[in-house]
Design a protein around this nucleic acid. Sequence first.
DNA 1: AATCGGAAGGTTTTT
DNA 2: CCTTCCGATT
Length: 773
Amino acid sequence: MKHVLLHRKEKTVSNFLDQLNKEQYDAVVQAEGPVMVIAGAGSGKTRVLTYRIAYLLSKGVDAFNILALTFTNKAAREMKERVLKLVGDGEGRNVWMGTFHSIFSKILRIDGHLLGYPSNYSIYDSTDSKRLIRQIVSDMQLDSKVYAQSFVAGRISMAKSSLMNADQYTNNPDVQTVDEASGKPMIKDIYRAYQARLKKADAMDFDDLLFNTYLLFAGFPEILYKYQQKFQYIMVDEYQDTNYAQYLIIKRLAANTENICVVGDDAQSIYAFRGANISNMLNLKKDYPDIKLFKLEQNYRSTNTIVQAANQVITFNKEQIKKTVWTDKGAGTRIDLIKASSDNEEGNLVAAAIFDQKMNNQLPNNAFAILYRTNAQSRSIEEGLRKKNIPYRIYGGLSFYNRQEIKDLLSYFRLVINNNDDEAFHRIINVPARGIGKTTLEKMMVAGDENGLSLWQVAEDPNSFGLALNSGTARKISDFITMIKSFMALNKSKDAYEIASYIATTSGLVKMHKDEETPEGISRVENIEELLNGIKEFTEKAVETNEGDLSIKKSLGEFMQDVALLTDADTDSDEDKDKVTLMTIHASKGLEFPHVIVVGLEENLFPSIQSISTRSELEEERRLFYVAITRAMSHLTLSHAESRYRWGNFTFTEPSRFLEEINAELYNKPKESGLNKQAVKRNFSDSFNTSFTKRPLKPMHRAENTPSAPSASQPTDGNIQVGMEVEHVSFGLGKVISIEGEGPNKKATVFFHAVGQKNLLLRFAKLMVVGNG
DNA sequence: AATCGGAAGGTTTTT
DNA sequence: CCTTCCGATT
């Protein structure tokens, strides 16, 4: 049987299917057989996937037989919510929806023992991996400059996502030629040692989650069969970002029924650097000659100006699947261009622009997103926002889970769950300081290596390895082991929150940071508390899902299974609701915001200096720009600075080539810095005439008929003075504390009785004078 | 063994 | 610029 027949259990499905356009509908109801949906930005990609799941359920397909894979937890969660909204709380919950990594990690917890992994295996994040690689490079007495950890990690990751183990890596002449040419012929040995250490620690890195799943399916046909039977209907989101390992796993899983539906947009492929391969999309036709192809081209997200800009940009790429994204929305407002003299001024101007737009259109903070190419750019932006008292939330960057104190505590948890987790052991054996120093640890590591044992196994019985430890040190080690064992014993009866907070105190971690008595120490304690709160929430959620049955609470082990695959973007608390979003463009994929500001549009930054040497890299940068533009629903602002501090050095920068790939008539007149209007005007024409010389430009239009043009509101600021009592439409009565700026940028700081101090741009605030103070 | 200070090195992008 | 690592000092 090639295609599983749908059970007949007719329900009225028309009511929710009405909400789809023709193409979306066709893609949704094509339930059987291979399907590829090429979905332009904002064309309802997620909608198709969620409605498809709902449709399958309504046709009587068992929820347990559906698998939906995404790339980010955020996307998975969103899909889940939307499915539950469509089909109600019951059945929808049983659909397997999650990221590749989380779904595969589950499979490996169940069946990984066939590959020699216990179900409580640890997951090493990239920090752990790199630390281990550095350790190995140093153990092998190689030059750590030649064998830079991130470079080696990159090579190993690339090998794993191409399903190449250390032996295959060693025996592959192409790979070896590359390594020899780059003067790094020992990578193959580092790879082998690295894998041995991971195995010894009962640990997998991110790439192993995919690689091992592949090995499991390839080596154990009965396991593959089991999951083929289970996952009769497979859906994959963001298919353009799959790598070879993911491609092959999906292909195997779907081999039986061929009920596979992939959704993607080649124009939004931005992870080639990580091994993602667009040809997975193009090759699908070869794998499934009878594949049904659907194109979603109507954009429901953005104004025509934004759609046009995106389309114009992408035409500069040679490699693409032809499609025409269109919208029936109006032109909307034009694109604003901000030109700042420096990175700091860019921060100020961006903050000012947000402030203006907020005041002008009565918008909440969360209507805005600021997107950048690299995390390092957030700093100057943050400063600008802080000065204007605009609340913001940064996603990514130094992630919460990567903070020292959090990693320390999590390492305790990891060691409790999996004693052999060497990275965790290494990290906390002397945190807080308990007199077990480098020398001792060094000895234990050597013994562990020689005997193929983990640090824990050595530490449990140091004498049998002939380690010349003095009795004091031996005592300290056995105390540590005893402590961890006591945690393990308690862990059997306690829920996640109880044991976690017990460990946080008993280990001495909290006390250690409290004793620092510095602001950093205080914030570390707060972070630990935040983690514990998160665990509490996790524990209590279990009670909810068990219909209030208090006896079933989630364990620490269950928490740890999830946490390794979580990122910062996955923790959204209520207080983050009304804040401006700051994130990298990569992190913004799949999201949308009414107002989007893309900053740092400068040569060598965006496009990145590392990606301008080859056409394919440059095209990926351009797709990244495409993604950035298409996040915007109603208004887009592009910004660049003429100078920027780059690792402490002041450097001059040129506007990005991408800026001129958008036709001039889509741009608005520039934001004025308020310093020198004539200079700004001159600079503006400069930026279009000197730096934008590669294409003939049409004359700029003035922004007369732009609805949100600032001139639309009446300036009433002529007579506002310090000390005056004034009234604001929404803030009520207040007193003017100070005034700054000139002309259209004149601002006042006003203390309102009801809401406290506010900074107002007088041209929008429409203050009424009620007294002269 | 712990602490402090200086040097060096690092910026893509993420599960 | 900021973080991290290493070595010298106590």
